[in-house]
Nucleic acid binder design. Structure first.
Lengths: 226, 226
DNA sequence: CGCCCTACCGTACGCTGTACGGTAGGAACG
DNA sequence: CGTTCCTACCGTACAGCGTACGGTAGGGCG
């Protein structure tokens, strides 16, 4: 009977930059960055597509705003103990932030990151650098160590959220390993079970590497305190 | 005068999967994955767009083939020395492979990776795992350590090739740091020069973190040899 | 020679981001 | 209250994307 409801014009100030970013984050987390589109976001807000351009220059600007919103709101956990224990807790929390917000992680990995340290919210960076300095590391060493921790954390989180497709991945990996020649790749085939196990243990895998880095830092710090 | 040259039909077997992957890699490395399109690739090959679908199911399959081509052709450098020196050389070479082939790296980071160890070519994985086992690490430890090295290497390389936009990045980072309150973020502002310096030193930053991880592994290996 | 198989391709559909111009509704003012 | 103006919202349109579908042409073979 009725037309497909040609959508009444939305009331005058039903929109705002904050509202847009809110729904954008919702969509991003729900459907992933691939399924995100201006038209979908606008429809979700009950608004014409071009209304969004009143508040943002374009899609990238919405992405940036969404990322900044999440990172700016994030506060690293309060910690106590030795500098290395605290560093461990702060990094692990950052890792879990990324895991819980795959959208933000994808934006970071996909070119929507400007500058190494702005990525993980300045507050977190401040904490990390302070702890590194307290450990006795020099100025440049501390800066480099912070970069290392960031890179490793983002790299690890990226691995983990890849399409949320753990089962599929483990399966294709088994297939690939089964097709390997034990003569050509003896160690890989020998360690196949361990590799498969490890692949499904995200946090364990992350902390393993994190502890390696922290151990290395302890060595550096001890050496610096000569 | 003449029509815009309606493009004669290409001779019968002017195409092949290998040829397509070749040009795809060329385009990918030249213009980046964003500017890559079926139409562009076909035109580059002097062929109608849909001809590509005779050899590949679609764009993703071409991506996968390109990635597999590069990784399968890659051989880690021959090395000598202690296990940790060799490991260092192999990982550094892998890092440089990624830096030299941004396209492949993007594909790895963007969901076109299936399984942790298939990423970096089985040959490299074999070398890494073998060296780790030779160091005295246990089976699971070796598997985890290999994962750590991969994650860190990919994470680092991703940082480095981000839009090849080093200058822009450093600039925006300076701006951000200049707008920080020294009272709120004393350590960050204090270390601003070091952070900026470090940001522009890709390989140095990578080897710094790599050596941290290797130091951690040495500790683990020594402990394992009890 | 004639047929067939298939590599190549033209067209079309639904999707994307967004430039441009129009419209309507609230505020401000006489 | 009437008028005008500003601007938030929006409809349309365009160029580009990946690709489904159907057609065509040309080499291989009977």
């Amino acid at each position: 009977m009725s037309q497909p409801a040609p959508r009444r014009r939305a009331p005058r100030n039903s929109l705002s930059a904050d509202l847009i970013v809110d729904r954008a984050l919702g969509l991003l987390d729900a459907k992933g960055p691939g399924a995100f589109s201006m038209r979908a976001l606008a429809e979700d807000l009950g608004v014409g597509t071009m209304a969004l351009y009143t508040y943002f220059r374009g899609k990238d600007e919405i992405f940036r705003a969404a990322r900044d919103r999440v990172l700016a709101a994030y506060r690293p956990p309060s910690t106590s103990g030795n500098w290395d224990e605290q560093l461990r807790a702060v990094c692990l929390a950052m890792y879990e932030l990324f895991i819980g917000r795959p959208a933000v992680l994808h934006l970071l990995a996909q070119g929507h990151a400007e500058g190494d340290f702005a990525d993980a919210a300045t507050v977190t960076m401040e904490r990390i650098l302070l702890l590194l300095r307290q450990s006795g590391l020099g100025r440049e060493e501390a800066a480099r160590a912070a970069g290392t921790l960031l890179r490793y954390t983002i790299g690890s989180a990226l691995r983990e959220v890849r399409d949320c497709g753990m089962p599929g991945q483990i399966e294709t990996m088994r297939v690939r390993m089964a097709s390997l020649s034990p003569a050509l790749h003896p160690t890989v085939t020998d360690l196949a079970p361990e590799l498969a196990t490890v692949l499904s243990d995200g946090v364990g895998q992350y902390t393993f590497g994190l502890d390696l880095i922290l151990a290395g830092l302890q060595g550096l710090a001890a050496h610096a305190a000569d």
